[in-house]
Design a protein around this nucleic acid. Structure first.
Length: 487
RNA sequence: GGGUUGGUAGCUCAAUGGUAGAGCAGCGCCCUUUUAAGGCGUUGGUUGUGGGUUCGAGUCCCACCCAACCCA
């Protein structure tokens, strides 16, 4: 009596009923090993007709023609259409098929053919249930639009938004190509401690933890620098580390508490050579991963919002010359006159106590933020970079570059300080006299002699943002940190 | 920390203070080459949470939660 039959329409309950139906039919809903001849996207991109194939994937589309069905099987490699007809698989399998849904993983065996609309396809002879999906997937056409779901449930974003998948595949390729580029040039990858007793190498708030057996507090590293320099002392003269740093600071469009950093050190080189190395490396990434030197950033409507041209050679300009480019007599006028000029030009410098901070604010707002194409800013004021070598000709500046692309700092590079006494003085100054913040073991190591070296750091997340056109760091980190919340 | 915007069905989105809707997904039926398949029918809601104003609140007010963006 349909009138008295309770209509069961809850989406989760319907899937549970199908799960039960599979069990009842003796079909394990969560399968085992399934050997394949190729993944869906691989078979499609290297398509040859008339071949026996086995593949597996998630059902992401179902076009039901009555007796014949067209399914898309997908994974991270892409999609492959399969054609399923009761005449080919038999009535028993056709009955099992009734219990499948979009979202289920299945394995298929069959033969490749091309449909009359020209679509590469697999004519299924048999299929195997690999995993029953108990929750419905996001909208097949729009995918996941809700940013919160994209970040908290990244797997849904990856299943339904191919453009998100592409960004992460590019990120993976970028990291792989960086390693290859450096290794081909004789750099070797080093692993140094992520838990440090003295968090050094940068000025940032660390995360704190505790080692029970040793009874000591430890800090997650804010940078690997001081350990990599110990490696230079140890005679490893071309090294890099590409891994995570942790900073206990704000979360924003450009900041995640854990982020990926490349640091590389090259003994007997200077900051100019490091600049060339970085220029070559980023150009290599653009060519191999992006496919060209021009990077276009688009808004959600698809319109180009900005264009970055990475074609080498990149400009190298002294910091002071860039400031003079903003205001020619900047270094000839009084401190008060500079502050008046800032106020008149809409720059808020109320938080700037020192003169160099005022100048730096002008640099950030009027040079850095407006620089889209690569620019090596060289010979920065020594107050800004306390750990670098002073310039031999001009003691007020240091031998460093800051690479600016896309309006943000992408990479600093130094001629590293290797005089242990000057290094100690600088670190003591930086720590404000708090001796427990000094990494004495590092200073001790320097006294054995560290070769002069060039060093670079590159924030990989921001580099990926620049290369892929992402406007938020959360779009290039698979699982960005979010405020806790139940699903 | 401050400001702005947003949170409605599984997903994507509507809804002058006056009966909460559509598309997709789901469910039922038709269809043997479709591809955002199509056709007919149909189910589905604590409108982020908690208060308040009102005859009446998704809509107005207050607080809180979560997110995005801008600022610090």
């Amino acid at each position: 009596m349909p009138l008295f039959m309770e209509e069961q329409t809850d989406l989760l309950a319907v899937r549970r009923q199908k799960l039960d139906a599979l069990h009842a039919a003796g079909v394990p809903p969560f399968g085992q090993r399934f050997d394949i001849t190729g993944r869906p996207g691989e078979i499609r991109s290297a398509f040859a007709e008339g071949n026996p194939v086995r593949t597996a994937g998630r059902i992401t589309a179902h076009r039901n023609m009555g007796k014949s069905h067209f399914l898309d099987l997908s994974d991270s490699t892409g999609r492959m259409q399969v054609y399923l007809h009761s005449k080919e698989v038999g009535p028993e399998a056709a009955a099992i098929f009734e219990h499948l849904d979009i979202g289920d993983w299945i394995g298929v065996e069959g033969e490749t053919f091309t449909t009359k609309t020209g679509e590469p396809s697999i004519k299924v002879k048999s299929f195997t249930v690999l995993s029953k999906s108990l929750r419905p997937l996001p909208d097949k056409w729009h995918g996941v639009q809700d940013t919160e779901i994209k970040y908290r449930q990244r797997y849904l974003d990856l299943i339904s938004n191919p453009e998100s998948r592409d960004v992460f595949l590019k990120r993976i390729a970028i990291v792989r190509e960086i390693r290859r580029f450096l290794e081909e040039r004789g750099f070797i990858e080093i692993e140094t401690p992520m838990m440090q007793q003295v968090p050094g190498g940068a000025a940032a708030q660390p995360f704190q933890t505790h080692h029970n057996a040793l009874g000591v507090d430890l800090f997650l590293r804010i940078a690997p620098e001081l350990y990599l320099k110990r490696m230079l002392v140890g005679g490893f003269t071309k090294i890099f580390e590409l891994n995570r740093n942790f900073r206990n600071e704000g979360i924003s469009r450009r900041h995640n508490p854990e982020f990926t950093m490349l640091e590389a050190y090259w003994a007997f080189a200077d900051f100019e050579q490091m600049a060339s190395l970085v220029e070559e490396m980023v150009c290599h990434l653009a060519k191999t991963v992006i496919g060209g030197f021009v990077i276009e950033h688009r808004n959600p409507g698809g319109e180009v919002t900005k264009s970055i041209d990475l074609t080498p050679p990149w400009r190298r300009v002294r910091y002071s010359d860039l400031i003079r480019g903003v205001k020619g007599d900047w270094y000839d006028i009084s401190s008060a006159a500079r502050r008046e000029w800032c106020a008149a030009n809409g720059l808020d410098i109320t938080h700037c106590a020192e003169d160099f901070e005022v100048t730096q604010h002008v640099f950030e707002k009027l040079v850095e933020e407006r620089t889209m194409n690569p620019l090596f800013v060289t010979h920065c004021p020594k107050e800004l970079v306390p750990l670098a070598k002073q310039n031999a000709q001009d003691g007020s500046v240091v031998d460093v570059y800051e690479l600016v692309i896309n309006g943000q700092e992408i990479s600093p590079g130094y001629s590293e300080l290797n005089d242990p006494d000057i290094q100690r003085a600088r670190l003591e100054q930086q720590s404000g006299g708090e001796t427990q913040k000094l990494d004495e073991e590092f200073l001790h190591a320097l006294e054995y002699g560290m070769p002069p070296a060039g060093g670079v750091g590159i924030g990989i997340d921001r580099l990926v943002m620049m290369l892929t056109g992402a406007e938020s760091i959360r779009d290039v980190i698979l699982f960005p940190h979010m405020r806790p919340r139940g699903v």
